[in-house]
Design a protein around this nucleic acid. Structure first.
Lengths: 120, 120
DNA sequence: TATATAGTCAACTAAATGGTTGATAAACAT
DNA sequence: ATGTTTATCAACCATTTAGTTGACTATATA
């Protein structure tokens, strides 16, 4: 009954948010502690409005949260959000690694069989 | 002398590639073993050309590789590619967690000080 | 040779992204 | 009350993305 899968949508937004060097640098900066929009915008050769929208993308992706401090709107890394992404990646990474190991032992068996069959 | 940072570009492409449910399902499928374009396209209500381009996006992002088997072009998960993404995420995740722990102990100290100053 | 199968290329359209400038809101400071 | 700082909203433009259809290449097969 739902137009789209909510988990898909959450992953879409999170991965898309990270698919931009500006937004990744913002994440990197916030990993060392909270910061305001002006502080986050300062290193970039781009208008503050543009950075403000990058921040909104990160916020809607659930990667950061914001609070209110007078006229400031400090940004904080959302605890747990990055874990969800690594969890998704790792789930398939581990399956693939198991698959590779299975292939390795299959090749081992084949070469063993060759050795066994060779003498015949 | 370079237009853009190569590492940035690689991360851009990889995260962008994962920011799509179709491409994530392709990755999920390939984690269980190689598959041809037709096999990958079959579950989707979309032309084979569209899926073919999704596959190219994954390939240019370095997430999958392709080989030749007659008229088939089997796709395989690129070993090690997913690790690089978790490595990027984890590097900041761990910094952030250390930061949270530091904040926790700071708050602990403050509440201890309050307790000590209370009696005065 | 002809024909089917696997896959890509090219051109087109609709929608989303990423940036700009200019106006505005909200909290502070004088 | 007026002005300053912090940040967002709105309109606009250029570029990219994601899908379509139709033509095409290349390999396999009758």
């Amino acid at each position: 009954m739902r137009e789209f899968d909510e988990r898909d949508d959450a992953l879409d937004k999170a991965f898309l948010a990270l698919a931009d060097p500006v937004r990744r640098r913002i994440i990197a900066r916030l990993s060392r502690g909270s910061a305001t929009v002006n502080e986050l915008a300062e290193p970039f050769e781009m208008t503050k409005q543009a950075v403000s929208r990058h921040i909104q993308v990160l916020e809607h992706a659930g990667l950061i949260t914001r609070s209110r401090d007078g006229q400031r709107r400090p940004c904080h890394l959302a605890p747990g959000a990055l874990e969800e992404l690594t969890a998704w990646i790792d789930s398939y990474r581990l399956v693939a690694e198991a698959q590779f190991r299975r292939l390795d032992s299959l090749l081992d068996n084949m070469s063993n069989n060759v050795q066994k069959e060779e003498p015949s």
